[in-house]
């Protein structure tokens, strides 16, 4: 059973971009796709723990800012070396302009 946490407002993220979010010491990355859908993943790359929010979002892909590992942020799927492990994803709900992520 997920706990829903208010992470940000929809306007806080530009389309096709990402912002960081912290909750109880855990980092998350919240995405807004070019189609204005919202997604959430773990905040750090599975390769060398870099913060993904500094990386480039193109379509459904987030690129790690350090070593260019790529993930599909809608599914968490790692796109191959150097990233070998998929990214954890979290369910997202949008209500009245607020983005909630489901954790736990």
């Amino acid at each position: 059973m997920s706990t829903w946490i208010a992470a940000c407002q929809t306007d806080d993220i530009d389309p096709e971009d990402v912002i960081p979010f912290q909750h109880e010491g855990v980092g998350y990355a919240i995405y807004r796709s070019p189609e204005d859908d919202f997604y959430a993943t773990a905040g750090h790359c599975t390769h060398e723990r870099m913060l993904l929010c500094d990386g480039l979002v193109m379509d459904n892909t987030i690129e790690c800012p350090k070593h260019n590992g790529r993930f599909d942020y809608t599914t968490g799927r790692a796109d191959g070396a150097p990233v070998l492990v998929d990214l954890p994803t979290y369910p997202v709900r949008v209500e009245d302009g607020t983005v909630f992520i489901g954790i736990g």
Partner: peptide
Amino acid sequence: GNAVAKDIS
């Protein structure tokens, strides 16, 4: 940090 990454990408 990673300040230059997006623009270089």
